Computed example of a mutant assay.
Amino acid sequence: MKKAENIIIGISIGDLNGIGSEVVLKTFEDSRMLELCTPVIFANVKILSFAKKSLDAEMQLHGIDGLDQIITGKINVLNVWKESVNIEYGVNDENVGKYAIKSFVAATKALKEGLVDVLVTAPVNKYNIQAEDFKFPGHTDYLDQELEGDALMFMVQDNLRVGLITDHIPVNEVSSHLTEALIKKKIETIQKSLIQDFSINKPRIAVLGLNPHAGDGGVIGKEDDEIIKPVIKKMFESGTLVFGPYPADGFFGSNQYEKYDAVIATYHDQGLIPFKTLSFGNGVNYTAGLNKIRTSPDHGTAYDIAGKGVADHNSFKEAVYLAIDIYHSRNEYQIISQNPLKIKEKQL
């Protein structure tokens, strides 16, 4: 039986030819991590032992064949497959991609069934994971299908939080996806996440404009005035503290983002370029809006440095920390929401 404060972290191993195994093992090489959580790595103990040897790491791995064999305070490795896999660090291998998905699907199933408390995913290669039974651009879209809620990519580093209205779509399709319903849904998802996942009672949210200078009064595109502004106005009038749309070019450089609990970008690069510039490799990709918790590091497979032992594991470690923090925040939120007196106490 696990301790109440020691939660079970399910970990999907990602692309075995990338830096996933390295950043996972480096994170839990610090034995103090096992006082906060019990990791369960969905992979194969022989593969993790091979990675451990290449890193000259000294931690003990506990191989298990079922989740009923988890030992608290140990680094558990669930044998999702038994056969050997040919590992060639830095190589884009379709066969290796199949094992990344086996790990992820098994970990998601365990999360869905409540056998692990949260999920942290190591990076995959979006090209080699495509298969007949897995036609998703990445982790988020699959989780959106399997779990309850509406998934939203939410990049987090301390008090810097950046959400996206649209994510993995071509830039020339962004404007056609921006609808009143979608913008409203994303703002509502972020507001709910800030309250229940980050314990912010009255969150302030900024929305970035789509066009340069947020359209400049319609001179440089009409979407900001005709689609985004009306949504913000309606939601603000109904009590949501949402502001904008703000011109995106100077918003981060002028530190304007510090006035808000979250920033919503209209498309992928508009939000992720400034986020990754400011987060210095410590950022976390959190999938907000779902009934279960999933985080991941904000980097990819890094084939160019895979197998060299030089990968920085800070982002993965921060992903573990954030998953634990959100797990506790959600539990506290549920307790408070069921007791109106506690809500009043928290607001005083």
Rank of each mutant, 00 (worst) to 15 (best):
K2T: 10
K2L: 12
A4D: 14
I11H: 00
G14E: 09
G18V: 08
V23D: 01
L25C: 09
F28E: 00
D30K: 14
D30P: 05
R32Y: 06
M33E: 14
E35W: 00
T38D: 02
F42L: 06
A43R: 02
S49C: 10
F50I: 13
F50Y: 14
F50M: 14
K53V: 05
S54E: 15
S54P: 00
L55N: 08
A57E: 07
M59K: 06
H62L: 12
I64L: 10
G66E: 13
K74T: 00
I75N: 05
N79T: 09
W81Y: 15
K82V: 11
G90P: 04
G90W: 02
V91S: 04
N95A: 12
G97R: 10
G97Y: 09
I101T: 12
K102P: 00
A107M: 06
K109P: 01
L111A: 02
E113S: 14
L119K: 01
L119P: 00
L119F: 03
T121P: 01
N128T: 15
I129Q: 05
I129H: 06
Q130T: 12
D133A: 02
F136Q: 03
F136D: 00
P137K: 04
P137N: 07
P137Q: 06
T140S: 08
Y142P: 01
D144K: 08
Q145Y: 13
E146I: 12
A151S: 15
M153N: 08
N159S: 14
V162T: 09
H168V: 01
P170I: 05
N172F: 03
N172W: 02
H177A: 10
L182M: 12
L182R: 15
T189N: 13
T189M: 10
K192E: 14
I195C: 05
Q196C: 04
I200L: 13
P203V: 09
R204Q: 15
L210W: 10
P212Y: 06
H213S: 05
G217K: 04
V219D: 03
I220G: 05
I228R: 05
V231T: 11
M235G: 07
F236P: 00
G239H: 10
G239L: 12
T240M: 13
V242E: 07
Y246S: 01
A248Y: 02
D249E: 10
F252A: 00
Q256H: 12
Q256K: 15
Y260W: 14
D261H: 15
T266A: 03
H268D: 03
G271P: 01
F275D: 01
F275V: 08
K276F: 11
F280S: 08
F280I: 11
G283W: 02
V284G: 03
V284I: 09
N285E: 05
Y286D: 03
G289P: 07
G289S: 10
G289V: 10
N291E: 15
R294D: 04
P297Y: 07
D298E: 07
G300V: 11
A302K: 04
D304L: 09
A306N: 08
G307L: 04
K308N: 03
K308I: 02
V310A: 08
A311Q: 09
A311P: 08
N314V: 08
N314R: 15
F316V: 03
E318L: 04
V320C: 11
L322S: 07
Y327L: 05
R330C: 02
E332T: 13
Y333Q: 01
I335H: 12
S337E: 12
L341T: 15
K342Y: 13
I343E: 14
K344N: 13
K344R: 14
K346I: 11
L348S: 13
